[in-house]
Design a protein around this nucleic acid. Structure first.
Lengths: 181, 181
DNA sequence: AAGACATATGCAACTATTTGCATATAAGAT
DNA sequence: ATCTTATATGCAAATAGTTGCATATGTCTT
């Protein structure tokens, strides 16, 4: 109840602008918050359940033919207030817990080549992420000044993703130079 | 049991080189793995307990005058084997879940100034971390070639910390430029 | 026809981390 | 004298996240 529970508030933020089902939220997470937050569908569905129980969102059933009912959630007044309250309170500085670095630290116990292989795999993933982010940036930059306006803050979060990935890849190059020597 | 449990293996890595008590491990975490892993004392003590129960480490009691007994843990053969096994298996790409970015994304709901204040606080912390890392780098770089040798891999993990913090601060500057405009 | 992929939802068990509490001593600073 | 910091350990409860399983349909590909 203190300063954490960011996933709940991230969901509230997304619902603040636009209602949606669990599945919608999952897609929005990937498309809009993917550069700094990751959540599985299980996590999202269970958080939606508790948010609903707590009265921070409500829910209407949209029957569909063939497929299961779509549960569409929307913000309540209580939810809005809770979100604003959270936004006012300071959050903790995010912490890195990177398993690849644990391995690197213990690297004297394994084969240099194996290390390099795994590094290459991670590099591929990071490169792909960077490419995705850069493509999104191009989309934003192509907008007219007035159309940019509502996306200025989300764009800043995208910049975080870009700078983060670039730093990662720069580091990977340093490591490769070392491993090849 | 699959690919995670990095904290346990980080502890094993530290004990592989040198035995130690929970308190020792806590300090070593801060000094040596702090640029990419963070663990509280509660976490370390409880992990040590389960590692001990699982026979991956053993423990001798060192009575001390006045203070509670020091429980000194050391690696077992089983622990060593488990560590090597883990090192062979691929780890997952680390994920970022940064609450400050959630706020930034929802920034239109709050006061620009409040945002800037919180950003400044985070910036101070990141700056302090970068300074610590740079000081450690200077220590390493001042060593002779032969003395550098055993610290080459830990140095690479330090580089990750440095590049990561620099990227964060660069981002913060972009954000400040925007918020001041 | 079989397989993959997208839509759409969720439970259960486990692992990981945080927060709050609890105890006890010694050394050094204000 | 009191306060802070360091040494030294741990439990319990809550929150957060992962992994595996489960169901059911529609479309598109091989």
């Amino acid at each position: 109840m203190t300063r954490t529970m960011s996933l709940k508030h991230a969901i509230l933020t997304l619902l603040e602008t636009e209602e949606g089902s669990g599945y919608d939220l999952l897609k929005r997470f990937k498309a809009r918050l993917g550069f700094f937050w990751n959540a599985s569908h299980q996590q999202i569905y269970s958080q939606l359940k508790t948010l609903h129980q707590d009265g921070l969102i409500d829910c209407t059933l949209e029957p569909q033919q063939g497929k299961p009912d779509r549960k569409v959630y929307h913000m309540t007044q209580a939810g809005h207030e809770t979100l604003i309250e959270w936004l006012e309170k300071p959050v903790k500085v995010d912490k890195v817990n990177d398993a690849l670095l644990v391995k690197m630290y213990a690297g004297h116990l394994i084969d240099k080549q194996k290390m390099q292989l795994e590094l290459t795999e991670h590099k591929t993933i990071h490169q792909r992420m960077l490419e995705t982010f850069l493509a999104l940036e191009q989309e934003y930059l192509a907008l007219s000044k007035t159309k940019k306006k509502p996306f200025e803050l989300p764009y800043l979060t995208l910049r975080r993703g870009i700078l983060g990935e670039q730093a990662w890849l720069q580091w990977a190059e340093e490591v490769e130079t070392f491993l090849k020597s």
